[in-house]
Design a protein around this nucleic acid. Sequence first.
DNA 1: CTGAAAGCGCTTACAG
DNA 2: CTGAAAGCGCTTACAG
Lengths: 339, 339
Amino acid sequence: MNISEIAQKAGVSVATVSRVINHSNLVKPETRERVMRVVEENEYVPNAIARSLSVRSTSNIGVIFPDIENPFFSGAFYGVTKAAEQNHYNVFFFNSDENVQKEQEFLKTVFSNNLAGIIVSPVDHYSDTTRELLEEIEKRGIPVVLLDRDIRGGKFSIVMADNEKGAYEAVSRLIQEGHERIAIIEGSTLTRPVYERSRGYRRAMDDHDIPIRGEYMVRGDQKSELAYQMTRQLMSLPEPPTAVFTCNNMMTLGCLRYLTEQGIMIGKDISMIGFDDIEALRVIDFKLSVVERSESDMGKIAMRMLLDRLAVPEAERETVVVPVKLVLRGSEKLQKKNV
Amino acid sequence: MNISEIAQKAGVSVATVSRVINHSNLVKPETRERVMRVVEENEYVPNAIARSLSVRSTSNIGVIFPDIENPFFSGAFYGVTKAAEQNHYNVFFFNSDENVQKEQEFLKTVFSNNLAGIIVSPVDHYSDTTRELLEEIEKRGIPVVLLDRDIRGGKFSIVMADNEKGAYEAVSRLIQEGHERIAIIEGSTLTRPVYERSRGYRRAMDDHDIPIRGEYMVRGDQKSELAYQMTRQLMSLPEPPTAVFTCNNMMTLGCLRYLTEQGIMIGKDISMIGFDDIEALRVIDFKLSVVERSESDMGKIAMRMLLDRLAVPEAERETVVVPVKLVLRGSEKLQKKNV
DNA sequence: CTGAAAGCGCTTACAG
DNA sequence: CTGAAAGCGCTTACAG
């Protein structure tokens, strides 16, 4: 069933049918009624592909995240789909797997798929190629909104958490508990959130006149496995840290795995605060203190920003910072007083 | 940059350019070379929308899952995107939120978006409307693959876990540990996995001549919150169960939350086995025994089945059952010997 | 208010 | 091996 069959059955031209289904107001009420009846009787649904080709844009947006299995991203993705659905947008999803090449492959399909806009968490803060691709996309009138991560030298709309503040408060708290030997597991510095969390760490240390020791700043890659190894490295130091701040939830898990395997008790033998809450641990009342934020809100806000840009293309790029909250549950403390 | 500009620059017709980019072999090598050079110089990428309109199908598949934040589904989704990417398919994602209406809304967009195929975990096993929509979709030549859940009276390809066996083994194990008062938190019976897990429970009880007590079979809705309440109901019974089997990971979390809040120790005061592993608990060596399966494999297999159907449309519908594994970590036991 | 016609950017029988 | 032309199903100036 296509538009010309409907036109024929309703005894009008395809132009008129098109006007009716697009709610144009230059069509006589009786005509509209007649057409609508035929449309309903035949359960006619216009072909979105043909429409897209004609108007040269779609109601499809693209989302490119590095790791959909990370609860932060699945939460943010949920927020995006929710907001998209309410506004009658469809969403394409691409998993970049923390791989710049893949990300760029996906970015190149934006044009051929005529996407209306994209939401991206770029893999590599320093990738000029990604930045150029994103700029090219914007130049062609397709708005880009970054989520959580941004990119050096770029001037894009972005929604992010108050990373530095979260880290600052977490580390300050550890200091208040009497710690000086505080480690940070950073994740690759390729991302801005990690950079800001690292800065929060350093500022907290500086403000409390605690010297920063290079061997306490280790670098993972956002994933669990490397954080596990980095934790082993930290704990093998001649003078191991007495507290650890981990920069994201997957790395928190890797760190916990090592400590658990070694029988090092969290909140007893070592103190710990992680960035991002971990539902399963909260549920069983495992005393992990965390910096938390609302993932799904971040997704909704990103979609909202995209819609705004779509409505007013020449609007200013904006930066939205969502609040974080330090939730203390006990792991920031130390029972053995060996600090 | 479109096909006719390329044709002009290369001094050939658009038909020839089309043949070149589609790897048709009826084009002279020299011509092909000349065209390819122009294509590359101009970084020409064909418009996928126009191609779709012309060939009346796309390289886009749709995925409709009830809850992307559930690690089972985000894992399966990861598998789907991975396999899709390798085969140059894009994926649309819809979150049905365990809501039949939303699911059906999405299903209706399949035609207008010219999807090549869809992968679905239907919300309601008994929804005739959903079944009819899926049948309509197949009738129009668009293959449907169900993942994890199926639908009554439908005849679709499906990939699922060996649910009954998993439940049977879990419950049998609890019985071996000496339990007779074993509860099951079922989730809505609207889904087949839950139905099969329930059957595994009953068969295990029957095989060991343990009478099944209605008050021990309670019904959640796949989500955490209701499982929490059902656990409270169970534990408030005059004769509360001594062991619990939970039918999915979200319900396991809800159940754990209640027990933890009440200070009921898992593996000490009560025994427990859940369906689906929970990474965060494994990492901290929380002794939860579970029935595990590979989520991402299920996603990959679903995509593989879809591709097969796309390649051979008249192929038989198939059912793929992926294996499950009972992983015992201690929560199946009971330290207080009050069984 | 309505229709005829061109156009969106491709593909593909058909003819040569 | 190659091109002219029709067609995919819409939208939208243009003319009336």
